[in-house]
Structure formats: structure tokens, C-alpha cells
Design a protein around this nucleic acid. Structure first.
Lengths: 131, 131
DNA sequence: CGGCATCCTTGAAGATACTG
DNA sequence: CAGTATCTTCAAGGATGCCG
């Protein structure tokens, strides 16, 4: 779906906030903006793989329990949004390699944060023990 | 869907890695684990609202363009996973307030990272100008 | 006010077979 | 090997109406 307004820049970093919204007219919420592009679990996991190293198609398929169709769709989407790059080597058999663009690498902090939050969750899961 | 294996603890922090996986038998990937719980865009946005401050139901509805049905579903889910707390004040008219639990507050770094990544994206969007 | 219940639309994903 | 095409299933979400 599409959201348009709200989001008053939540915890608004330490700086900024000085001259109100002067040049920026109707900036959408950054969080929403990014979630509208990579809200799929697979997008995150694909990006995580590529953060480790470049990958060929079948390597991604082996790393993730994803169908070829969905994988292709997600890859095309990430490519379209300029997060990954698709490089085709005209060989036989075909060889395709995916890598992160600078913009793609920008989500590393997000992946890292997810990693840590997940670890924290898992460790207190063993103590508290909920579902 | 359900994933079960893979994830070799990606960029595995600086330390650890010493005694292999001794006590941990089949730990799922933390990232997957957490994404299986809050992969919905709405979950993130609800958590973001509650990170700012506690909220009543109608406040969340006003802040987010979400249907009452979906909002309730997401709230129940977050509650079930122990990320938020639901407090009912037996008044007339009814009054319900949602707040974050410690576990819920754990995802603040994730939200912050999303915020920054989104801002970076939006700012180079204006320069490069892709869809 | 908070939130079910119902109906309906969409999209995400899997499985499978097939092509260059 | 990489990717497309087709068919199917299922969950997410919206809209609306009703209730305590």
C-alpha cells in the first residue's frame, strides 16, 4: 500500500531541526520509504548474503530456501531500486554475479541491528521461554 | 514460510568464534528469527510510534494509515511476542494504552538504522533521481 | 472508544516444467 | 546455469457494519 504523510521525524537525531523544513517540501517518512522497498523478508536476507560477499545465482539459492521465481523477482526489484548490481558473463554455461551498490551497502547498519536484536531476543528466550 | 538452517553468523562480531558452537545446538539465524516476527511494515511503524511515547489505540490509527482490523492484528501479534504491553483502563468510554516492553525497546537500533538508511537514500535520490 | 466479524482484493510465495 | 511461464495457495490488508 501507499502511505503519504505523517512521520514527524521521530527521535530526530541530535542535530538538525534548525531551519524547519525549508528546502524539503513533502518528504515522506524515511522509514516508510525504505520499508516500502525492502519490506520482504527475502530482500533483507539477500542483502545480508551480498554483504558477506558477491554471489552467483545458484549460491543464493543454496544459501536461502527460496524458489527460483521469488529469488528472481526480489533480485530484479533490488536492482531496480539501485541496491544491487547484476553482472552477466557471456559464457557457456551462463554466469551471473550479484553485488551490492553503495546504496545497498547503506543498509548494513540495519542488518547489523537486526542481527543484534535477534541475538538478544534469542538469548532471553531461553530464560523467559515464551513462544 | 519457515526457514530452518543456514546463516553462519555473517560478519560474526570481532570476538567470539573461539569454542565453536558448544552449548548452542541448532540456533536459528537471529535475523530470520526476528524477521519472522516483525516482517510487516506495520509492525515496524507501530514500534516506531511507541518508541516515541505510549499510545492509545486511536492515536495509532491517526498516526498511521492503517485499518482498524490490521492494527489490532499487528498489536496482538506484537503483544504475543512480548514486544508491547496492552493496558486496559476500565472506564467509560474504554481506554487502552500500548507501551513497549524491554524487548520491544530492543529494536530501537533497528528503527534508528532504518531511519538513517532511509534518509541517505532520500537525499541521494534527489541527486541521482531514479524511481 | 476499542475492537470483533464478515467479505473481498491483492500480492507474495511455492512447485513444477520448460528454454537459451 | 540462469531464468521464464503457469497454476495454485495463502496471508495481509482494506472496507464496512455492529457491539459492549
Amino acid at each position: 500500500m501507499k502511505v503519504t504523510k505523517h512521520c514527524e521525524t521521530p527521535q530526530a537525531g541530535p542535530m538538525s531541526r534548525g531551519s524547519e523544513n525549508s528546502t524539503e517540501t513533502e518528504q515522506p517518512c524515511p522509514i516508510e520509504y525504505i520499508l516500502d522497498r525492502i519490506s520482504s523478508k527475502w530482500s533483507f536476507l539477500i542483502l545480508r548474503e551480498l554483504l558477506i560477499d558477491n554471489r552467483r545465482t545458484h549460491e543464493l539459492q543454496e544459501a536461502l530456501p527460496i524458489s527460483t521465481k521469488t529469488l528472481t523477482i526480489r533480485l530484479r526489484e533490488l536492482e531496480k531500486y539501485g541496491m544491487i548490481e547484476r553482472k552477466v558473463y557471456p559464457e557457456i554455461p551462463p554466469r551471473v554475479e550479484y553485488s551490492l551498490t553503495p546504496r545497498g551497502r547503506n543498509i548494513k547498519p540495519v542488518i547489523d541491528a537486526l542481527q543484534q536484536a535477534g541475538e538478544a531476543w534469542l538469548s532471553d528466550e531461553q530464560v523467559v521461554g515464551d513462544s
